[in-house]
């Protein structure tokens, strides 16, 4: 006698409850950045060996593999290195208003920060465009203290 196998595929419900994570961040480098943002300033860390200026600043140089701690003040203007237009969220829901997001190399920095560009039609955006940071009225020392960037 053989067993009648029937359909091989069935569904059972499953969830993936991965609880809450506690991440330890690079306190020194990130603190430097958010503390400076509270004063509406942007500060990074410079490697004394290769002179790379990192924003946000890590506490060691990727290339030279040494500890770094030289604080440098960065401009609040910079250049768009690349941009993307968000038309749907990550779950696939279309957005009513498209969002222009960009990677911006601030004047005096070698690495790029992320930001949103407002006040322009995304069709007019271009790489190489100069932008300026606009702050929230009352910065609290958070990455959200930069409200937006605008073309200058």
């Amino acid at each position: 006698m053989t067993f009648e196998m029937g359909e091989e595929t069935r569904e059972v419900q499953g969830t993936w409850d991965i609880s809450t994570y506690k991440y330890l961040i690079d306190g020194a480098g990130m603190k430097l950045l958010v503390d400076s943002m509270k004063e509406k300033k942007i500060r990074g860390i410079k490697c004394p060996q290769c002179e790379t200026v990192y924003v946000p600043g890590p506490t060691f140089c990727r290339k030279c593999y040494i500890d770094i701690d030289e604080v440098v003040e960065i401009g609040e203007t910079g250049v768009v290195m690349s941009y993307a237009v968000e038309m749907a969220d990550v779950r696939g829901n279309p957005l009513e208003e498209f969002r222009l997001t960009a990677m911006i190399k601030l004047d005096g920095a070698d690495t790029w920060i992320i930001g949103t560009i407002s006040g322009m039609d995304w069709h007019d955006a271009r790489i190489g465009m100069r932008v300026k940071a606009f702050w929230v009225d009352e910065p609290v020392g958070s990455l959200a203290d930069i409200d937006r960037f605008e073309a200058i």
Binding site: L24, I25, D26, G27, P58, T59, F60
Partner: peptide, 10 residues
């Protein structure tokens, strides 16, 4: 652990 994982590894 009271330092970031990256610092521990470095």
């Amino acid at each position: 652990l009271d330092i970031p994982r990256e610092r521990m590894l470095f």
